[in-house]
Simulated scan of single mutants.
Amino acid sequence: MELRREYSYYLIQLYIPCMMLVVVSWVSFWLDKDAVPARVSLGVTTLLTMTTQASGINSKLPPVSYIKAVDVWIGVCLAFIFGALLEYAVVNYYGRKEFLRKEKKKKTRIDDCVCPSDRPPLRLDLSAYRSVKRLPIISRISEILAANTDISRRVDLMSRLGFPTLFISFLIFYYQTYVKQSRD
């Protein structure tokens, strides 16, 4: 008699749906920070769906007193989805602060000036016209991280890169560890 685990069942029932839920939770990074209902409902829906997925899988497995690889997988996927929801909380907090600061600046500008001007100040130096050859990705990253960019926008842009990078790193680590343990 030989006991063998069916990996295809767990792949189709657990791993692929959980990966899809994590990736769907990242869609909120591309939504406008002012789209509160869309971002909140996306985050809460993916979190609840992941919780339902986890309870369904755990009910089919026998209870044991130690942590299984599936528990680690579900826990990390839940953490990534919850992290995406928390990311929006941070974006919303800083977005509100930036909005209030801009409103305050508008009020003080109108009160202080007779004729407020919307034109940018005139530059007298030629540094803007000198061409420095840089890769487009490097100039884009430095533009994103510039001090004059809104913090809420920077958090969204950094999350677009950071969350997938961390998740791919986890996938590599998880599968290397999982395959190594299954061979032993």
Results as ranks from 00 to 15, higher is better:
residue 103 E to N: 14
residue 111 D to T: 13
residue 111 D to Y: 06
residue 5 R to G: 13
residue 42 L to Y: 01
residue 79 A to N: 09
residue 4 R to T: 14
residue 148 N to A: 07
residue 117 S to E: 12
residue 76 V to Y: 04
residue 103 E to A: 06
residue 69 A to P: 03
residue 57 I to W: 07
residue 60 K to R: 14
residue 70 V to T: 14
residue 16 I to S: 11
residue 140 R to P: 03
residue 102 K to S: 11
residue 12 I to Q: 13
residue 58 N to L: 15
residue 62 P to G: 09
residue 61 L to D: 07
residue 130 R to V: 15
residue 63 P to M: 06
residue 107 K to N: 09
residue 99 F to G: 09
residue 138 I to Q: 08
residue 23 V to M: 08
residue 79 A to P: 09
residue 117 S to P: 12
residue 19 M to G: 07
residue 147 A to L: 06
residue 94 Y to T: 11
residue 113 C to W: 00
residue 59 S to E: 11
residue 76 V to M: 09
residue 134 R to E: 13
residue 87 E to C: 02
residue 62 P to R: 11
residue 122 L to W: 02
residue 45 T to S: 13
residue 48 L to N: 10
residue 59 S to Y: 04
residue 148 N to I: 03
residue 85 L to F: 14
residue 68 K to L: 14
residue 101 R to W: 02
residue 149 T to E: 10
residue 68 K to H: 05
residue 77 C to G: 10
residue 26 W to K: 00
residue 9 Y to F: 10
residue 45 T to R: 02
residue 103 E to P: 00
residue 18 C to I: 03
residue 82 F to S: 15
residue 143 E to C: 07
residue 4 R to D: 07
residue 133 K to G: 02
residue 85 L to E: 06
residue 23 V to C: 07
residue 5 R to E: 13
residue 94 Y to H: 06
residue 121 P to G: 05
residue 134 R to D: 07
residue 31 L to P: 07
residue 75 G to H: 03
residue 41 S to P: 01
residue 29 F to T: 03
residue 132 V to R: 10
residue 39 R to T: 00
residue 142 S to M: 10
residue 62 P to C: 09
residue 139 S to F: 01
residue 3 L to D: 08
residue 32 D to A: 05
residue 24 V to K: 11
residue 138 I to W: 00
residue 11 L to W: 00
residue 46 T to G: 05
residue 141 I to E: 03
residue 61 L to M: 14
residue 117 S to K: 08
residue 143 E to W: 03
residue 19 M to A: 14
residue 7 Y to T: 12
residue 85 L to M: 14
residue 6 E to D: 14
residue 49 T to F: 01
residue 137 I to C: 11
residue 87 E to N: 04
residue 141 I to H: 01
residue 23 V to H: 01
residue 126 L to E: 06
residue 35 A to P: 00
residue 65 S to F: 02
residue 23 V to I: 14
residue 52 T to P: 02
residue 128 A to V: 01
residue 147 A to S: 12
residue 15 Y to E: 15
residue 3 L to H: 06
residue 123 R to P: 13
residue 54 A to N: 06
residue 98 E to D: 15
residue 110 I to S: 04
residue 99 F to Y: 03
residue 34 D to G: 12
residue 125 D to K: 09
residue 95 G to I: 02
residue 144 I to P: 08
residue 131 S to W: 00
residue 148 N to K: 11
residue 146 A to N: 13
residue 75 G to V: 10
residue 99 F to L: 10
residue 55 S to W: 02
residue 54 A to E: 11
residue 40 V to G: 01
residue 134 R to I: 06
residue 129 Y to S: 13
residue 147 A to Q: 07
residue 46 T to R: 03
residue 117 S to R: 06
residue 129 Y to G: 11
residue 91 V to F: 00
residue 24 V to D: 08
residue 139 S to V: 02
residue 109 R to L: 15
residue 135 L to F: 08
residue 105 K to G: 08
residue 58 N to W: 03
residue 146 A to Q: 07
residue 67 I to W: 01
residue 66 Y to P: 13
residue 13 Q to N: 15
residue 69 A to T: 12
